[in-house]
Design a protein around this nucleic acid. Sequence first.
DNA 1: CCTGTGGCGTAACGGTGTTTAGTGCCAAAA
DNA 2: TTTTGGCACTAAACACCGTTACGCCACAGG
Lengths: 224, 224
Amino acid sequence: MTIFPALFTVFTMSDQRETILAAAIELYLREGFEGFSMRKLGRELGVTAPALYRHYEGKEHVLAEIMREAHRTFMSTIYRALEAPTALDRFFRAGEGYLDFSLGHPRWYALMFSGPAQIGMEKFPEDIEAMGAAIHQFWIDRVRECMDAGILKEGDPVQTSLTLWAHAHGLVELYHRGHFQIDVTQFRALFEASGARLMSGVATEAFAEELAQKYLNAEAALNA
Amino acid sequence: MTIFPALFTVFTMSDQRETILAAAIELYLREGFEGFSMRKLGRELGVTAPALYRHYEGKEHVLAEIMREAHRTFMSTIYRALEAPTALDRFFRAGEGYLDFSLGHPRWYALMFSGPAQIGMEKFPEDIEAMGAAIHQFWIDRVRECMDAGILKEGDPVQTSLTLWAHAHGLVELYHRGHFQIDVTQFRALFEASGARLMSGVATEAFAEELAQKYLNAEAALNA
DNA sequence: CCTGTGGCGTAACGGTGTTTAGTGCCAAAA
DNA sequence: TTTTGGCACTAAACACCGTTACGCCACAGG
């Protein structure tokens, strides 16, 4: 938590840089990934495209900046869950927040989880990767809390949070790709039910026991 | 199973159409999404770009054809799991096949799970959507088998297969986006462990019971 | 033999990201 | 007050992109 403000401190941008960013965000949210271009962005600002290169090194850097904004917005949504009184409440509120964000701001969600190649970069800048790691850390903390509260099974919170996160992200992705032919409210119900299934386990008790002995032995021994 | 061959019957293409497709696949697999262009494809074939439009209506249709090929390859990989003797073996072999395919052919995997906008289409053609549905059906069948064999808890196989699929897909996506800073063998281990965790359940028994009553009641009553 | 069609090339249109060179303005220094 | 310097901008250009219109030519069918 103490590292959080430092992560999101931004170098003071010139006024023009901020103006451009605001227009870029507006343009991206309206037109999406394919409809975003430097020339359009310039037009929007009453300026020719090359002028933008005085303030941003290239399109990739503008998109990276939008990506930072996406992360910040996501964070501010998700961090509201910390106001809840118990570990369980915080966990569930965080899950709701995740779902709300992914459904309410699909373009920001898509940008957050797009690879470097998609925005024309080899690798993401370090600070963006750090933002991803911070989100992961948030989930790790929620999971650890719930383990301590006797809600989640004891185990490595890092691994368990990945299981939960992958499940949530996978559902959202499949939904956004249009794989499910259902509406939003149906998807919300599906999301909740699938989450509950993940919590309770999919295998029968007999088989779960067998599996646990095979795959989760070392871990269990570690936490005994 | 009987519907399967019909789904993959293709209209006889002219020789040139097939030649173009072969080169297109080669180009896409080598250069990826961003590096694929009609002009490059023409150059590869010793032909100018407009010539391609005698055989394909546009870039989107070429990419759609590659997408069909991706689905076919995926299917032929995954269907090998059906040779295994028991439901459990088929289920696990299918899971291995999924992981192998996603790691061995990341570009094909990415194409299979890319949205229509990414290839420049409004909506996918019906036959491609049918291929996605066929894959889903494959998982549903594996899940139903395992339910009958007493390996998976009784329930709606459609819902349960979605939970499993979303989890697998989410893990693969997060890995491909470079979120995990681990190598392939470590990821394989993570994938297996996370799968086992999903099977056994993440929540403690007490809380799982509480959850089941809240979310899975109707379903359980239905299957009682 | 003629005709028509199919496959291709050329040129072009409008779009993209980006670089280079030049222009004008404004503020600070002399 | 004049000069200078730097900054934000434009215009033009380069190298791409998807796509269309048009003209050419070779080959098959009548």
